[in-house]
Design a protein around this nucleic acid. Structure first.
Length: 423
RNA sequence: GGAGAAAUGGCAGAGUGGUCGAAUGCGGCAGUCUUGAAAACUGUUGAGGGUCACACCUCCGGGGGUUCGAAUCCCUCUUUCUCCGCCA
């Protein structure tokens, strides 16, 4: 959520910046500014009424104390009008504030200056790539065939137990998945991230805090009996650990990593994109979350990008890094780098990580602040990134590491797996 | 799930209808003293709205109510603690 003060002072530049997202923000910004002005004028009037009423109440109190009940009762009569007026103004104020809030929730984050304009993923900008795309064996298979051949992931069984998009990992498949989780967490804690195990369900306030609500309501599983949401990513519970906090500046940087399953309804997905592990309703992910001073958040973003590169380098997977264009940029993000692994057998790139700086967008909703040098409260910056999303890493490994005799395990994972071949 | 108790500033903890945004202690910050530090002493120290700056307004777990006036009384929800039950 953008700050009102920012909107008041920079309306034109926000309109220009949001054009990168292909949004004409003029109408909504004008509506916001009108509501803001209306809200403040009602507030001023209400404050004045309350001030007068407070003053009278004090006088009445003093009169009663000094035994002048008659005069006090006369004053009492004057308060009725004030009471009525403040009640009405209070209702107006609530209605106006709610309308204003609703508009503010609909406004996406301002893209960073480096974000290219564009409509879709075709306009994303490749900024880095590394790793050789392997030449595969004759008759190389996509991962869903490999999963069946070696009996390590059972998609049909998942359909029986739950439904499509909930695979069952078995034997060495399950072990490899567990190995990847441990390996990622170790890499992250070695880099100074504190490991946390957050809840897998969150309340509504947390959903609003990180921006999934109200924007992506339909993408989350909602447990209506208890009004809780299954997390679509660990970003939600972990970032919300600091909702409402005023953190001492010396605590920066705050760095967390956590493993959780992620639940996504994926309404509207179809076709080859949902084949095999490509898109699931439940998948595992190890996440990075950082809370930073505004002056260092882009440095932190670079660090996260380098960190994820390092992991992919160790796994020896061919990958590329993309700078997302305005049209593909997430609602809450100012700047996002996507990591994609090349899935050789499918001959396509699979997104396995997304690293973003939200600047103050989430912090404003979270009321996550710090004290600056002058003792003033200021919004912090929040960032997050995946390191990494498990199913697509798994798909990448299965497809790129297949040999005639089985699937080789990347060297760095062998100690975690306890075997070096799936055969 | 049942019964009872509680929820106040960073923490501890007063306050049970009026001048209370809230005593006191601890902690934090600034200063005096000191070569320096500690101790002692003095001052200061919640958040938000609003204003050029003041004024002023709101907030004592959330919401609603009674009253001229609510941290204080009433209703309701949530959470925590104690006891009982159930349970991985």
């Amino acid at each position: 959520m953008l700050q009102l003060q920012t909107i008041r002072e920079n309306k034109e530049s926000i309109i220009t910046a949001l054009k990168k997202r292909n949004i004409d923000a003029e109408p909504i910004l004008s509506a916001i500014l009108d509501l803001d002005e209306k809200r403040r004028s009602i507030q001023t009037e209400l404050d004045g009424t309350l001030a007068e009423s407070n003053k009278l109440s004090k006088e009445i109190g003093m009169l009663f104390k000094s035994g002048k009940a008659q005069e006090a009762n006369q004053l009492k009569e004057q308060t009725a009008d004030l009471k009525e007026a403040s009640k009405q103004l209070g209702e107006d104020l609530n209605a106006t504030s709610a309308a204003l809030q609703e508009q503010l929730y609909q406004l996406p984050n301002i893209p960073h200056a480096s974000v290219p304009a564009g409509n879709s993923d075709a306009d994303n900008e490749e900024i880095f790539s590394e790793g050789d795309i392997p030449t595969l064996i004759e008759g190389a298979l996509p991962h869903w065939e490999l999963a069946k051949k070696y009996d390590i992931i059972d998609f049909e069984l998942g359909v029986k137990v739950t439904g499509a998009g909930f695979p069952i990992y078995k034997g060495k498949g399950a072990r490899l998945q567990r190995a990847l989780i441990s390996y990622f967490l170790d890499k992250n804690t070695d880099a100074g991230y504190t490991e946390v195990q957050p809840p897998h369900l969150v309340n509504e306030a947390s959903g609003y805090g990180t921006g999934q609500l109200p924007d992506k309501e339909g993408q989350m599983y909602h447990v209506q009996t208890d009004d809780l949401y299954l997390i679509p990513t660990a970003e939600v519970p972990i970032t919300n650990l600091h909702r409402g906090d005023i953190v001492p500046q010396e605590n920066f940087p705050i760095k967390y990593t956590g493993y959780t399953p992620c639940f996504r309804r994926e309404a509207g997905s179809y076709g080859a994109h949902v084949r095999g592990l490509n898109r699931l309703h439940q998948f595992d992910k190890v996440e990075l979350v950082r809370i930073e001073h505004p002056s260092t958040s882009y440095q932190a973003l670079d660090e996260m990008v380098e960190h994820v590169k390092d992991i992919l380098r160790e796994l020896k997977l061919p990958y590329r890094v993309l700078r997302l264009c305005g049209g593909d940029l997430g609602f809450t993000s100012a700047l996002t780098f996507d990591f994609e692994v090349f899935s050789t057998a499918q001959d396509r790139w699979l997104e396995i990580s997304s690293v973003s700086n939200f600047e103050t967008f989430q912090a404003n909703r979270l009321k996550l602040r710090f004290k600056d040098e002058n003792g003033k409260s200021q919004l912090a910056h929040t960032l997050n990134g995946s390191s990494l999303a498990l199913p697509r890493v798994l798909a990448g490994i299965l497809e790129n590491y297949q040999t005639e005799t089985g699937i080789k395990i990347p060297e760095v994972l062998v100690p975690y797996c306890g075997f070096d071949m799936i055969d």
